[in-house]
């Protein structure tokens, strides 16, 4: 019974979290699209990409509704010519396939900004900025008209020759943005450090235990304590 509660609790928490998060999301829209004025231009890379994938442009973002359920996700982010000197939080666009940061006076960008950007496949950066995760994290890196273009994010887990990435026991390596990997629990494993395997068969354990306790208590009371005289 308690075991059920423990599994229910995270579900409820996530539900509340989602309600709050998406509630505010619907009202104001993602802030990342308002980082600077204007909207995605039709001629830009992101604009072309958005048109080809039937996206909807809103501010600096290209949205795509994945029909089934849930809110729209940002598939493209065009922050070019935005006078950005630093970039810190782009997490709202973590599902993006394309990000354009060209024509900004950026000095450097931490790799951690793109942690978790699993689907990011095309980046346009000012020439001075290196591709996140280094050149080894991308299929193709080229410099073109003052822009650095990073294409085709590589999966760090399957690379050979690189320092081998070993996830701890019971977990598997998976991509987690350019240069990053995550260790997610292998099948059947869950919980902190993936230490737990399977679900505890509460009914099979406590059912017989409870039944035998009742039977044994009654049997012993009947044979032993029934005729006890109070001392």
């Amino acid at each position: 019974m308690k075991a059920g509660c423990s599994q229910l609790q995270p579900v409820v928490l996530i539900l509340i979290f989602n309600l709050c998060f998406y509630g505010s999301f619907q009202l104001t829209g993602p802030q990342v699209c308002e980082l600077c004025g204007g909207s995605v231009l039709n001629g830009s890379e992101v604009g072309k990409f958005c048109a080809s994938s039937a996206g909807r442009i809103n501010g600096r973002c290209c949205f795509q509704n994945n029909n089934t359920y849930g809110p729209e996700r940002i598939i493209g982010l065009d922050l070019s010519n935005c006078s950005l000197t630093h970039v810190e939080d782009l997490q709202e666009a973590s599902k993006a396939l394309m990000i354009d940061l060209s024509l900004n006076p950026l000095v450097n960008i931490s790799d951690a900004v793109f942690q978790g950007f699993i689907e990011l496949n095309h980046m346009i950066l000012p020439q001075e900025i290196f591709c996140p995760g280094g050149n080894t994290s991308w299929e193709k890196v080229e410099v073109n008209e003052g822009n650095r273009i990073c294409q085709g994010q590589k999966d760090v887990c399957n690379q050979t020759g690189q320092l081998s990435i070993e996830c701890p026991e019971n977990s598997l390596c998976g991509p987690y943005g350019p240069g990053f990997f995550e260790c997610s629990c292998a099948e059947n494993y869950h919980g902190y450090k993936c230490l737990r395997e399977g679900e505890f068969p509460a009914l099979q354990v406590f059912g017989p235990l409870g039944a035998s306790t009742v039977v044994l208590s009654f049997l012993l009371w009947f044979t032993q304590r029934r005729k006890v005289k109070p001392l």
């Binding site: 230490l195 737990r196 679900e199 505890f200 235990l209 044994l216 208590s217 012993l220 009371w221």
Partner: peptide, 27 residues
């Protein structure tokens, strides 16, 4: 393998059941 909390759960429930049996059966 289900988690250390279940090791505690099982032993403590068994121990509790033992206490109940003792209550009803011990002279």
């Amino acid at each position: 393998k289900y988690g250390y909390e279940y090791a505690f759960l099982v032993t403590s429930v068994v121990q509790f059941a033992g206490g109940v049996v003792v209550f009803f059966g011990l002279l």
